[in-house]
Design a protein around this nucleic acid. Structure first.
Lengths: 196, 196
DNA sequence: CCCTACTGCGGCAAAATTACGCAGATGAAC
DNA sequence: GTTCATCTGCGTAATTTTGCCGCAGTAGGG
């Protein structure tokens, strides 16, 4: 409703990630695929850009330094009701995926991810008729690897504890130091033995 | 009041899973926690029960034989608009979790889970007083959570592999030797009192 | 200011996990 | 019978992870 600098009718894509390198790479990749990319590395900038530029799409990192990308999702939607938000994270878990979708994200992908997958997720179900009737993802044929299961469980309890690491470690019956170390590592891929 | 057996104002919990053993176990555990449980092992029965009994809660397996539990979620909501659906699966993945939430599920848990976690997920954000603040003053919930979870999962997959240790280790993404050691070592410590 | 609690991190010994090899058993294929 | 693939149990040595200190900084309540 207010002014925006959209000269053309194309609305930009807002890229929010605290990793400058990642932003640069993905920016280039998305720009070359026809998007007008604007980017931010923290919540405040992201909010401002969203308000001013009314982006159509948003690629949002879950972990923005100290801040939490999840909080931004509802705000973005109130600023730009029709924005499609794609969550992206190197520390993916089912618990945070559930949270993200509940808060209105359109999809959730785990890093590392290639730009084509990002574009696909962004555009999925966009251009008109939804086809979510026979588009169901199938369950993996293999159960979760042990590491993965552990990761998911940790994430869930951690969420339950509002991110309190000490409390989570206590409930999980593990050493706080061990939890810290585990959290600092990246999650395991979904498929055991599947290289990235 | 005419067509269903709800004599009181409590509405039942619909449990849908193709694994009869699992249904029996969880049924007992949930019943003992005060739920009136009705169960189905396929989509058709689930639909019928939902229509007739108007359950307040639903615990739904992702993989129902050939059928896909995801498909049922929107249907359940159209049959019973205020139903809270909890997805449960032994083959969890982020993709299906995202899809489940998009379709209106309230939460998504990976098996193995203990009944308390199910109840917690079911009730989370229900019953008025909630504002995503957690209220978990007491923590007798999951002391051995990690170890036990691992053990349950190993047993589940081992059974699935008909006791084939090598195959199980492969699916679990762990070293065969490690699995051997875990299996040989573990004196299964049951926790008394929990009925799941 | 004092006290409690959480967090991140370095270091070190103990424990667990891994990668390997080896030998015996089994069952299917030839 | 022989060959081949696979599973199994187990030992050993290299690696990784964990448990358990401690310390310093931060935040909130009394």
């Amino acid at each position: 409703m207010n002014e925006n600098s959209n000269s053309s009718n194309t609305r930009p894509l807002l890229l929010v990630d605290d990793d400058a390198t990642f932003v640069r790479v993905l920016d280039r990749a998305l720009t070359s695929r026809g998007f007008e990319v604007i980017s931010a590395t923290n919540l405040a900038d992201a909010r401002m850009l969203a308000r001013r530029q009314q982006p159509r799409y948003c690629v949002l990192d879950l972990k923005l330094g100290e801040e939490n990308g999840l909080r931004l999702i509802p705000e973005l939607h109130s600023l730009v009701p029709d924005m499609r938000v794609l969550l992206l994270t190197g520390y993916a878990s089912i618990a945070t995926a559930v949270e993200a979708i509940k808060r209105g994200a359109h999809d959730y992908l785990a890093k590392p991810v290639d730009a084509d997958a990002v574009v696909r997720a962004l555009l999925d179900g966009d251009g008109g008729s939804e086809s979510d009737d026979d588009d169901l993802p199938d369950a993996p044929e293999a159960p979760l690897a042990l590491r993965r299961l552990e990761w998911e469980h940790i994430q869930r309890v951690l969420t339950e504890c509002n991110g309190n690491i000490s409390e989570t470690a206590r409930r999980l019956g593990m050493h706080r130091r061990t939890l810290q170390r585990k959290l600092s590592k990246h999650p395991v891929r979904e498929r055991p033995g599947d290289g990235d």
